[in-house]
């Protein structure tokens, strides 16, 4: 079947079998280390939702937008998260950084001020050696605060 979608702003068209995943469609050469999504290395944005590229059929991306970690810097709505990560020093590990940012996007998309219980539920999925839960939870709180301030400080329309 022919699938066409925007990947990081570039239109890609591919012929793939129905059971092909978004990961195969994106075809960025990443291997699939865990096959069931636990490793979180395959997270992408499909529209404005964070999904596992290895667990979503490619046809779901047809005529849609896929954003990979490589293009997150170009999305202004996620700058709060990237700044918060830099502030706590979470942006240094190339392996862990993308999936942590996607986890944060998922979390903050559910509410601007997530509670500590919800933050804890998320941070238990951190599974690499170069990041720790405390820093991640701190980054989430900072990002939520930045977003809140930005929303409240926005000048009223005339």
């Amino acid at each position: 079947m022919t699938i066409q979608a925007q990947v990081d702003g570039v239109t890609i068209t591919r012929d793939l079998p129905p059971e092909a995943s978004v990961m195969e469609f994106v075809g960025d050469g990443r291997d699939q280390p865990c096959a069931d999504g636990r490793c979180l290395r395959c997270l992408v944005l499909l529209g404005d939702r964070v999904v596992h590229a290895c667990r979503v059929p490619a046809y779901r991306a047809h005529n849609g937008n896929v954003t990979t970690a490589a293009a997150l810097d170009s999305r202004p709505e996620y700058r709060d998260i990237l700044r918060a990560f830099r502030r706590v020093g979470l942006g240094t590990c190339a392996e862990a950084h993308p999936y942590l940012v996607f986890l944060a996007i998922h979390h903050l998309s559910e509410g601007s001020s997530p509670g500590t219980g919800e933050t804890g539920l998320l941070s238990r999925h951190i599974n690499d050696r170069c990041s720790n839960r405390t820093d991640f939870e701190r980054a989430l709180r900072i990002a939520a605060g930045m977003r809140r301030r930005r929303t409240h400080e926005r000048p009223a329309r005339r």
Binding site: M1, T2, I3, P18, P57, Y59, H62, N63
Partner: peptide
């Protein structure tokens, strides 16, 4: 939460019926 990408035109129906 938006489902925008679900609402767009769907791929060829002979492969996966949607």
């Amino acid at each position: 939460m938006s489902d925008r990408h679900d609402d767009k035109s769907l791929p060829a129906k002979e492969a996966v019926y949607i």
